[in-house]
């Protein structure tokens, strides 16, 4: 669980260089556990609970649509999308990146069928 990629993804670094505008294109690799303010071995319930807590705090609805808050909440969403899905989380833990959502549903199901069956109800 503790091994995640320290190396920034190629995409993020190039983007920051191209636009040179931190706020708009600052996609330097985030540690999703830090974003969600949880430990690396946090349980699914803890992750879910913390996501809700952060959502109530950072959702733009609670800030009259402030754009900085939107970016922050987008990050929280991204982190939760990965960490709330057992398969994406595992992949992220190993490689520091996840690409599950690039698969079609069929590929996804056939590849991770066993895992989904065991994990159902947790995510």
């Amino acid at each position: 669980n503790l091994s995640f990629c320290a190396e920034p993804a190629q995409l993020g670094s190039t983007n920051a260089a191209v636009t040179g505008e931190g706020a708009l294109w600052d996609t330097k690799e985030q540690d999703y556990y830090k974003v969600l303010e949880v430990d690396y071995d946090a349980s699914d319930d803890t992750i879910k609970l913390n996501y809700r807590r952060l959502a109530l705090m950072w959702h733009p609805d609670k800030h009259k649509g402030d754009s900085d808050v939107t970016a922050k909440f987008q990050e929280i969403n991204e982190a939760y999308t990965v960490l709330s899905d057992p398969i994406k989380r595992l992949e992220y833990d190993f490689s520091g990146c996840y690409e599950i959502n690039r698969y079609t549903l069929r590929e996804y199901l056939s590849r991770f069928k066993g895992m989904i069956l065991t994990c159902n109800g947790l995510g």
Binding site: L11, T27, P60, T70, A71, F73, Q74, N77, E78, T81
Partner: peptide, 9 residues
Amino acid sequence: NTTVPARRE
């Protein structure tokens, strides 16, 4: 079914 606000590239 991506949670919004969202940003993907």
